[in-house]
């Protein structure tokens, strides 16, 4: 995928020299590219007239930003209160065992990026996993591997 022209297009949508737009610009870049590359952060900073340090501060403060390329699918483990008391952390351990990568990491084959999220609004089905948009409810540790295989391209 040609990344560079796309980046320029996004950046050009914002008036130059307006530091206020930094957060929004970074959000737009991430939406388009899936993560914030070093190059993207630099381009955003330069365009809006802020230091790269400022841009990195924003990019690292807000958890929504990713600084490394993403897997083909995102696996979210809900660790909201309801899912927690119904065993979400056991699921997280199981996911780590099954995929060989834990929360915050991407599997070696690039299939999944794994994240923890707070309540996704389906507490009735707790504990819940989300594979991209698809929600898997009432997941038991012993069935993680099977459910993931069905939902996507798991090992």
């Amino acid at each position: 995928m040609p990344r560079a022209p796309e980046l320029n297009d996004i950046v050009a949508k914002y008036p130059p020299g307006k530091p206020r737009a930094l957060l929004h610009l970074l959000q737009d870049i991430q939406t388009a590219q899936g993560y914030l590359s070093r190059e993207a952060i630099g381009a955003a900073a330069q365009h809006l007239g802020v230091t790269e340090t400022r841009a990195f501060q924003i990019a690292t403060f807000y958890k929504a930003f990713h600084l490394t390329p993403r897997g083909r699918q995102t696996l979210r483990i809900c660790t909201g209160t309801s899912c927690h008391i119904r065993g979400a952390m056991v699921l997280a351990d199981e996911v780590r065992k099954t995929l060989g990568a834990g929360p915050g990491a991407t599997t070696a084959d690039g299939a999944f990026s794994i994240e923890l999220v707070n309540c996704v609004g389906a507490c009735a089905l707790a504990p819940v996993l989300l594979v991209d948009g698809e929600m898997l409810g009432n997941v038991h540790p012993g069935t993680v591997a099977r459910r993931l295989k069905r939902a996507g391209e798991a090992p």
Binding site: T79, G80, T81, S82, H84, N118, C119, G121, C123
Partner: peptide, 11 residues
């Protein structure tokens, strides 16, 4: 809606 276990505002 920061409460990690709630979704009323979302609803």
């Amino acid at each position: 809606e920061g409460d990690p276990g709630a979704f009323m505002d979302c609803a």
